Simulated assay, not measured.
Amino acid sequence: MILVLNAGSSSLKIELFDHGLTSVVSGAVTNIGTQGELKLGDARQEVTAVDHAAALAAMLGALDKAGHPISALDAAAHRVVHGGTILTQPARLTTSVIKTIESVVPLAPLHNPNNLAGIYALQHAAPDLPQYCSFGTAFHAANPEVAIRYAIPKTQHDAGIRRYGFHGLSYANMVAEFGADLPHRLLAFHLGNGASLCAILDGKSYATSMGYSPLSGLTMGTRSGDIDGAAVLRMSKAFGEDETDRLLNNASGLKALAGDNNMKTLLARDDPDAKFAVEHFCYWAARHAGSALVAMGGLDAVAFTGGIGENATPVRDRIMELLACFGDVPVHIVTADEEKQIARDALTLIAKGQ
């Protein structure tokens, strides 16, 4: 059994897989730090977990009662958002790897500390259990230098200001799910509250819409997507750095255009703001797609994943209508499953004796 953990700021999600990558059970502890809920399969119970360690202890206890004691686990695997320029492949968690994850916290200050909290908690609870990690940025490490470098002074580039890309685990899972049927030049969309696209050439990322942070690229649920740096500077002077960060990450995108970041709700509305927000989302997805097609030299197929990508047929249809100038190509829908990819990565490393 492989236990996959995804530690967020106030939640701890888990999923248990067997060695055939079949999901056995999934669950979560919510509202860490206050009264929350522990969910495991169909079971629910109220819990109060003061921190990630307490949340993990409660989850391990629930797994034990459900017939999955920690002694039955072969390994655990964690989602880590950012691996920087060093951690570009899945890895077994060692002291060195953990120190590197800690060193890139400034690149993902809202995510890596939470991911590390889950790692620390499990190390304390089960020090002899092998632990592995997979990185959301790693899939894009194959991007050529011209795709990742901003035209800024080398000192800033060397300090880490460059394009990294995100949603890499989702794209890696998509490639694995295609298997031998993977198209040569695949335009992949991960569309959800966070949205991005990726030019996948022979199974490798050649360009992606997100950059230094998940803010850039497509219009998203609450993120602005691409915005001129001078506009950000003006906003920062007017509102301060923290408020500008909040505005661009939490109060922009669909929410700013139509007062709601739920695509299902927007599609059901008939007012001009909702229609414009949906069109904005589709237009910029297709417009960014044009640059991705240049990066991989053409197009053989399109694939959609993520909550919107999988479920919002009108959005998929509109994006494909805007891309019709590139020819008629197959369109695929792939279920998003980052947890499965993390388990797959861990099993691959175990098979190699790592």
Rank of each mutant, 00 (worst) to 15 (best):
L3W: 02
L3T: 00
L5D: 03
S9R: 13
K13E: 08
F17Q: 01
F17H: 01
H19F: 14
T22M: 12
S26P: 09
S26C: 13
T30A: 10
I32P: 05
Q35M: 13
E37F: 01
D42S: 14
R44P: 11
E46L: 12
E46P: 13
T48W: 10
D51W: 08
H52N: 02
A54E: 10
A55R: 03
A58M: 11
A62D: 03
L63R: 02
A66E: 10
G67H: 09
P69M: 06
A75P: 02
A77G: 11
V81K: 06
G83C: 05
T85P: 08
P90S: 09
L93P: 02
V97N: 00
K99H: 15
L107V: 09
G118I: 02
H124W: 06
D128S: 14
V146T: 15
A147E: 14
I148M: 13
R149S: 14
I152W: 08
H157S: 13
A159Y: 12
I161N: 09
L169Y: 04
Y171W: 12
M174Y: 04
E177D: 14
L182K: 04
H184K: 15
L191N: 00
L197N: 15
C198R: 06
A199H: 06
A199P: 01
Y206C: 14
T208V: 14
T208M: 11
P214K: 00
L218G: 02
G221W: 05
R223G: 01
A231H: 13
A231W: 12
D242K: 14
A251C: 12
G253R: 00
K255W: 10
A256T: 03
T265Y: 10
D271A: 03
A274T: 04
F276H: 15
F281R: 00
H288C: 11
A295Y: 07
A295E: 11
G297K: 06
A301L: 06
G307P: 03
E310P: 09
I319Q: 03
E321D: 15
C325T: 13
H332T: 08
I333L: 11
I333H: 05
A336I: 05
Q341S: 07
I342D: 02
A343N: 08
R344M: 04
K352W: 08
G353I: 01
